[in-house]
Design a protein around this nucleic acid. Structure first.
Lengths: 199, 199
DNA sequence: CCTACCGATCGGTAGG
DNA sequence: CCTACCGATCGGTAGG
């Protein structure tokens, strides 16, 4: 039964992060409280915060987890498609699945956190902004390839396509989370398709 | 110097609401705290919360104010247009102005609060959902008129148009608040125009 | 990883 | 509208 403290520590860290991610997705990254989370996980407050140093450290770690979840669910399944329109279509397909059947109980985490943190300052806000910026650039790059290859019309341009795709996703997330609107997925799919229609 | 307690009370209430709306727009409706707000306004905590009964009462009152601001800035300037495509165009024009030059320091309040409250329960969540639902229905109704009059194509349908317009606004609000992106207004305008193009 | 504790602040109330 | 106060909880630390 090989066991060592490093393995145990990693297990504890992971257990904390799972519970923290759930709580943060429902109540926001600022709504995370060390005391309640410690109760949930079955640790003392000191034991809970130890691996992360501070609440801010925990918030940043949660952001890392949720970014990985998003990447695994939306980007990676589309990654083997050829860059350009085909990959954008695959991304949108998995994006809709992700938003309508979200692994996080509170829905798309980046939607929640961009809105929660856009009026604040500091490392958490910066990390949130960077995640969103990176994703918009990913969309933009594929849109650019698609336009250059003639797979998409030159108007709307790549920035407008990235903006539009992201906006549709935000709208779908709101419809699902606020209204439990099962018809919204179809609306988002059609909106995606319109934006990615062949010239 | 005519003065009476009712007038004074209304003045106090209004002074509180202005400060509360600013604070809530930056830090969220749950981020409102009675103590800090009392300091800001120059009242005691008891004096602050008195006119509203509880924090929840204050939150609901703030929602009432922000709904009025939105209506005054986006809906009312378009209200005299004929129902249908013309009015939707006017709404979108003022919506962009509202989002890019927002009277609330934290940007569109309904964008922030729908995301903050979609994972919660209670009267505040219900009020938030109702505001958003009402607005979507307003958009939908004009879209329906426009389609019936032949001003817009029957596809996308009225629900899809309302969904799309709202999504674009959410995307613009994010771009402005998170990235201070001055180019986003143009992207939103073009996206609005595409969705409202004549058949 | 724990217990035990810190000062600060939370929403709210009693009584005037 | 105030002062004075309530119990609960906040993030975090000391020491082990």
């Amino acid at each position: 039964m090989p066991r060592n403290s490093a393995v145990d520590a990693a297990r504890t860290r992971s257990k904390i992060l799972i519970a923290a991610t759930d709580q943060a997705s429902l109540e926001g990254l600022e709504g995370l409280t060390i005391g309640r989370l410690a109760d949930t996980v079955g640790l003392s407050k000191a034991g809970l915060i130890g691996p992360f140093g501070s609440k801010e450290g925990l918030q940043l770690a949660v952001l890392g987890v949720t970014n990985q979840v998003f990447t695994a669910r939306v980007w990676r399944p589309a990654a083997d498609q050829p860059a350009g329109r085909a990959r954008l279509l695959a991304i949108c397909e998995h994006w809709v699945k992700y938003l309508t059947n979200c692994p996080l109980p509170g829905g798309c985490f980046i939607c929640t956190t961009t809105s929660e943190w856009d009026g604040r300052e500091g490392p958490v806000r910066d990390a949130v902004a960077e995640s969103q910026d990176l994703w918009l650039k990913t969309l933009r790059a594929d849109a650019e390839v698609a336009i250059r290859a003639g797979e998409l019309a030159p108007d709307p341009d790549a920035d407008e396509i990235a903006f539009g795709l992201n906006a549709i996703a935000m709208g779908l997330n709101q419809a699902v989370q606020l209204f439990n609107d099962t018809a919204a997925a179809g609306r988002a799919e059609k909106a995606f398709a319109r934006l990615l229609a062949t010239p």
